[in-house]
């Protein structure tokens, strides 16, 4: 009797306290990650966010609308020259000082959300996922989750998401010593239907605009590879699985470039392999932008480039382990 009373008390306590508690229920946090991925796509919102990495700070105004035609997005840089970007699902238009400078179209439709159930399992194997204190970001209640890697080959991530919709309000990437590598947060935000939609069908997607675009040569084709190209990566950190391998045109190379994408569910690592062109200067070394690092290395007649939102030691380790194992 005494025991069952205790049990009832425990259940009640759980019900009352759990939302504000650091509870060790990783399955729930994984579902939350799915919700966040869905919210990034399906929530209507408008606001100003700030991105900071090292001494580098950028601010942007963003408006995102989801309707029967899919996603519509507008991004404006604040400060400096006026740069703007419009996105309709897979098509992106870049503007600079009111002039269209570039059009891009994603050729491979991504499965969405990109986190597959088996990836959620590997995520749990490679990160300790915990919910931390609730917080307020840009005036909204946020639920914070920390992804603590079990090795030093990936970064610590802390994410704050809107309690009601799951929209990501703030994200911080930290290294294994607790230094902030990059962070991004909304400073001002409106979530919901009261969002200006007048910009959604502007001239950038009108027939005239598209006709003008088609004068440019048709975008070269990306070819997905079912079978391995023969290139092998031996020293990926545990939990990184290959999600795609393709042959893609790249930077005016005559020959297509092999692009492999690996993911541990949270971070991505891309490996590019291309034939070295005689006339080109190959820059081998390491560079970075926020949490992302780029490392390249010559391997015989090929240039291997590794890009990922992982520490520099990881891109070096991966890059040094790429070899050709085919015929």
């Amino acid at each position: 009797m005494r025991q069952s009373k205790y049990l009832i008390f425990a259940i009640l306590a759980q019900l009352v306290v759990s939302p504000a508690f650091a509870d060790p229920a990783p399955v729930d946090e994984m579902a939350w990650l799915q919700t966040m991925a869905l919210a990034a796509r399906q929530t209507d919102y408008s606001g100003v966010f700030v991105y900071q990495s090292g001494g580098h700070v950028e601010m942007s105004r963003i408006t995102h609308v989801f309707d029967q035609n899919g996603e519509h997005e507008r991004l404006e840089g604040i400060g400096g020259g006026k740069r703007e970007l419009f996105r309709d699902n897979d098509q992106v238009w870049f503007y600079s000082d009111g002039r269209k400078v570039r059009v891009e179209k994603r050729q491979i439709k991504r499965a969405f959300p990109a986190l597959l159930p088996e990836q959620l399992t590997t995520l749990r194997e490679n990160y300790l996922v915990t919910r931390v204190e609730e917080d307020e970001v840009a005036g909204y209640h946020a639920r914070a989750v920390v992804f603590m890697p079990r090795d030093n080959l990936r970064y610590v991530r802390k994410m704050w998401a809107h309690n009601d919709t799951g929209l990501l309000l703030k994200a911080v990437v930290l290294d294994d010593r607790g230094y902030i590598i990059e962070q991004y947060a909304f400073m001002q935000l409106i979530v919901g239907s009261a969002i200006d939609r007048k910009w959604i069908v502007p001239d950038h997607s009108s027939a005239a605009g598209i006709a003008q675009d088609t004068q440019a040569p048709p975008p070269p084709k990306v070819e997905l590879l079912e079978e391995s190209s023969g290139w092998q990566v031996d020293a990926l950190p545990p939990g990184f699985k290959k999600i795609l391998e393709m042959r893609r045109p790249f930077r005016g190379n005559k020959e297509p470039v092999i692009h492999m994408v690996f993911s541990d569910g949270l971070s991505g690592i891309s490996v590019f392999i291309e034939k070295v062109r005689e006339e080109s200067y190959i820059h081998s070394g390491l560079s970075g932008q926020g949490a992302a690092h780029v490392y390249n290395r010559l391997s015989g007649q090929h240039l291997v480039t590794v890009v990922g939102e992982v520490p520099s030691r990881t891109v070096i380790q991966v890059g040094d382990s790429v070899r050709y194992a085919g015929q």
């Binding site: 990034a40 970007l85 990109a114 991505g268």
Partner: peptide, 21 residues
């Protein structure tokens, strides 16, 4: 284009494209 971290970030992944860098 294929990184999983772009999934939860949404449009913020494009921030470098509109910064006056």
């Amino acid at each position: 284009e294929f990184s999983p971290s772009a999934d939860v970030r949404g449009a913020a992944s494009y921030i470098h494209a509109v910064s006056g860098r």
